[in-house]
Design a binder for these strands. Structure first.
Lengths: 109, 109
DNA sequence: CATACTAGTCTGTAATGCAAACTAGTCTAT
DNA sequence: ATAGACTAGTTTGCATTACAGACTAGTATG
């Protein structure tokens, strides 16, 4: 039961992938935030090539999940939204990344 | 054209992830099919812990994408559905896997 | 003044994932 | 013989999602 059981175990992890992180658009957003620590809406908009509406809704979802901190302020009368990962967001992304690495290491192909 | 433009960051690859493969349930199904080469509906049902309806619809989607071959026959009066990866399915899974490995190698965390 | 730009949010919609209900037939026990 | 349980799936209905375009609100410029 050695090799087969181990394989089955790795694959089973696929089923409880964190879908908040798993969605490509959000994975991209989180990746940027993970690197830069803090970014504004327009930076993410340009980097991700998402539409505003789409980016906005993904950020809202990430905020609701407690992964992203949304901080609104003004820079010389111009509104600015500053995004950053929360501790939970950082943890979730890290765990997702670790899990996926493990899955793909044991996956065929 | 400058060579600078060509430095396609790994993160950019996230945006065109193959969503047919990316969906966890289907990733799981494809993983099993990739290993065993051929499996029946009930085998997949048990291995994946999906509900019948859910498994059925995912298989239909995979079939429609040309990734999975669905072959129905009878084994002593009992209907059986045999699933196997097509060449395209095998290729798609392999490419997805390679791409994800690359992404996660360059990802922080 | 108006036109363009910055910075987003809101709304409508088509697609998706999911499970329960349903279909169709077989096997078993009474 | 027929009720009940099981096999093997498909269909249906629903709630959620992702997405883009329309819209709001304010600023800078000619």
């Amino acid at each position: 039961m050695s090799a087969k059981k181990k394989e089955a175990h790795a694959l089973q992890k696929i089923v409880d992938i964190n879908r908040v992180v798993h969605e490509p658009a959000r994975l991209l957003i989180l990746s940027y935030l993970y690197v830069v620590e803090s970014a504004d809406f327009l930076f993410l908009l340009r980097q991700t090539n998402l539409t505003k509406g789409n980016l906005s809704s993904h950020l809202m979802k990430l905020e609701k999940a407690g992964y992203v901190n949304v901080e609104k302020n003004f820079v010389q009368k111009i509104p600015r939204t500053l995004l950053s990962l929360t501790k939970e967001g950082r943890k979730a992304f890290h765990e997702y990344s670790q899990r996926m690495k493990k899955i793909f290491k044991e996956l065929p192909g």
